[in-house]
């Protein structure tokens, strides 16, 4: 089985994000990590590879020089080779990104192409499904996990109040939601070995953008929290405040 996986390096969002003077994200002190949903997708890809002998995983990433740390880590976890589409700054337009990825993936004869359901920087939730349409492939978005039999995949997708079960003919595109499988970490030995895996660096060409980020701002701050009281005695006060002041019950 030939598997491709598109991964993006994103700022670690467990820390604060700050807006710099120029109106963009302040990159100082920011740590960069693999987009968490891409990490879940990598786990699914590696599981498939373990299950189906002769499988091969190719990574594709558009990103700056420093994205190679993330690519190496993903190679160490279980991917076999990588294509780094190198840029100084990642364009923000999802369509432009998707077109470059589609172009790269087009000739690869992949059976499955994985994406994260979204990148947690811009939270676009678009690229995977756009690439699928551009390549005219079937696509199920936000899947938690899969079962594979021959050239058919059963994909599980969480929706409001339920789980949709899809039967999908390969080749196909899947975008990954957090699922039942915890992503694994690479061993030191594997990190060393990853340096010897094939990594191709290319310069992509982007089309013009349909979207433009005009400004970033902080959401309005919440008023400082207020403690109503302690223990069961404070419950009537709380209920009165919710009813009369906040008017939510």
């Amino acid at each position: 089985m030939k598997i491709a996986l598109c991964i993006k390096q994103v700022p670690d969002t467990s820390v604060r994000v700050k807006i710099a003077q120029d109106g963009k994200i302040d990159a100082s002190g920011v740590e960069y990590v693999i987009n968490p949903y891409d990490e879940y997708a990598l786990e699914e890809a590696v599981r498939l590879k373990e299950q189906i002998t002769g499988s091969e995983i190719t990574l594709v990433s558009i990103g700056p020089e420093k994205a190679q740390q993330m690519i190496l880590k993903a190679l160490a976890i279980g991917a076999d080779k990588a294509v780094h589409l190198k840029v100084d700054n990642i364009p923000q337009d999802p369509l432009a990104i998707a077109k470059v990825l589609a172009e790269e993936l087009k000739g690869g004869a992949y059976d499955i192409i994985f994406f994260g359901k979204k990148a947690v920087d811009n939270d676009n939730h678009q690229v995977g499904a756009i690439v699928a349409e551009l390549l005219n492939l079937p696509c199920v978005t936000a899947c938690t996990h899969y079962e594979v039999k021959d050239s058919e995949v059963t994909a599980y997708r969480e929706i409001e109040g339920g789980v949709e079960v899809y039967e999908v003919q390969l080749p196909a595109v899947f975008t990954q939601e957090k699922g039942p499988h915890e992503p694994r970490y690479p061993q030191l030995r594997e990190l060393m070995a990853a340096r010897r895996k094939p990594l191709t660096v290319k310069q992509p060409n982007f089309s013009s953008s349909k979207t433009e980020s005009l400004a970033l701002s902080y959401p309005p701050a919440r008023p400082q929290g207020k403690i109503v009281g302690k223990g069961v005695e404070a419950v009537p006060d709380l209920v009165r405040l919710l009813h009369e002041e906040a008017k939510v019950i």
């Binding site: 369509l95 678009q126 997708r157």
Partner: peptide, 23 residues
């Protein structure tokens, strides 16, 4: 911006080469 809306919107974006703003 439901599961269905999020699934459909990017497909339309690709087919019409039109920009999409989510959420």
């Amino acid at each position: 911006g439901t599961a269905m809306g999020k699934d459909l919107a990017p497909r339309i974006s690709a087919r019409f080469d039109a920009g999409l703003a989510t959420d």
